[in-house]
Design a protein around this nucleic acid. Structure first.
Lengths: 117, 117
DNA sequence: CGGTATCCTACCTGATACTG
DNA sequence: CAGTATCAGGTAGGATACCG
């Protein structure tokens, strides 16, 4: 592979580092990829991103929403109904993220040494 | 995009989650991508993954080496010389990681709101 | 040069309770 | 249902000093 990031990857404190931290965060990855299956509700995401706490799901969604990657659609009904979905920008990101997740899924058992999953 | 991970992304506690945490860790990403430019020494990596502490660089390299993604080549000379490089598996991973980094680099300024970088 | 060892802090996590 | 608030506890990560 030819040189991709000559002279350092990203400067520290650079916007790229901040965005990278957002999208590669433990729950950011799982939420983004989960949303590739289409709009989902809070409770869907809690179930599909298994293990996420309410606190971290809220925090993650707020960050991704502020970054313009996730859209929050709240219906003014009772009981409340909120749908989360990828924005066009988020879809674009997901397209480069999914291959990474697929690769991890394919090789994880070999690399880590599957403790029954 | 069609359904990619129906019924949840990865089960919690699954090897995929562990490997995902390794390769999407703050410094894991930077080290892996930095090594796409070829073998590099400890001091190179410290400089190119700007901001990494010695502790975290050591920890990150040990994890990636244990996962078979990074190769450590120590020459028995004085002063010591150690070269780190990607294994074939690591190269494969880098190929799906680099598009993500490129995307982040392209959009970071728009999304985060560049504070002079 | 290429690391350990030590300490310390910040954030993540988990549990519980409460609200529109 | 879809969150927010609070607090205790653990762990990832950072700063510093030292070593072969």
């Amino acid at each position: 592979m030819e040189s991709v990031f000559p002279g350092g990857v990203f400067p520290a404190g650079c916007p790229s580092r901040v965005l990278l931290d957002h999208v590669t965060s433990k729950w950011g990855v799982l939420v983004l990829v989960s949303l590739t299956d289409g709009p989902q509700r809070w409770s869907d995401l809690r179930r599909r991103a298994e293990g996420v706490s309410e606190k971290m799901l809220a925090q993650t969604l707020r960050t991704l929403e502020a970054d313009g990657l996730v859209h929050r659609d709240q219906k003014p009904v009772m009981p409340p109904r909120v749908d989360y979905s990828l924005t066009p920008l988020g879809e674009e990101l997901a397209e480069v993220m999914v291959p990474l997740l697929r690769w991890v899924g394919r090789h994880a058992d070999d690399i880590i040494g599957a403790p029954a999953c």
